[in-house]
């Protein structure tokens, strides 16, 4: 059995939506270099609060890149409130599963998107429920640094 599913390998080898959106409406970055993964999500959001475009940059392992790619696919063209409902479980399922010790990669993808949306809300003075957004990760619990 291979380490990753065909889907993971496909999204790792041919990642969708890699890149940067200049003057993005929302940007979210999670992770840190010490733990070995960073994801950055860029959103272009139109007046109807629909995600017109999404791009990502990722530093990380195969499943981190595949999770970012899949997550961007799942929210592209979707209304913001729908994007906010994206869970790490949905990302994992769409990838036909991830090895247990790689599940945190899908969590990072979910959190990066939420952080980008939050950034958009902050920039536009839109009110939101703070508790629905992840707090910034402290590294201590994840890699013991």
């Amino acid at each position: 059995m291979a380490l990753y599913s065909e889907k993971v390998m496909d999204h790792f080898r041919n990642p969708r939506n890699v890149g940067v959106i200049e003057n993005a409406d929302g940007v979210g970055e999670v992770g840190n270099p010490v733990c070995g993964d960073i994801m950055k999500i860029y959103l272009k959001i139109n007046d109807d609060q629909i995600i017109d475009d999404v791009k990502f940059e990722t530093f990380g392992c195969g499943s981190a890149i595949a999770s970012s790619s899949m997550a961007t696919e799942l929210i592209k063209g979707k209304p913001l409130d729908e994007a906010l409902k994206l869970t790490n479980k949905a990302v994992t399922e769409a990838l036909d599963g991830l090895p247990a010790h790689k599940l945190h990669c899908s969590v990072l993808a979910e959190e990066a998107i939420k952080k980008a949306v939050k950034d958009y809300y902050d920039k536009n003075g839109i009110e939101y429920d703070e508790s629905k957004f992840p707090k910034d990760h402290d590294c201590e619990h994840c890699c013991g640094v």
Binding site: M9, F12, R13, G36, F59, G60, C61, G62, A64, I65
Partner: peptide, 13 residues
């Protein structure tokens, strides 16, 4: 600036 697992998987390809 890069992570080793992705490096080795792409070299495997």
């Amino acid at each position: 600036g890069i992570e080793g697992e992705s490096l080795l998987l792409l070299l495997d390809d």
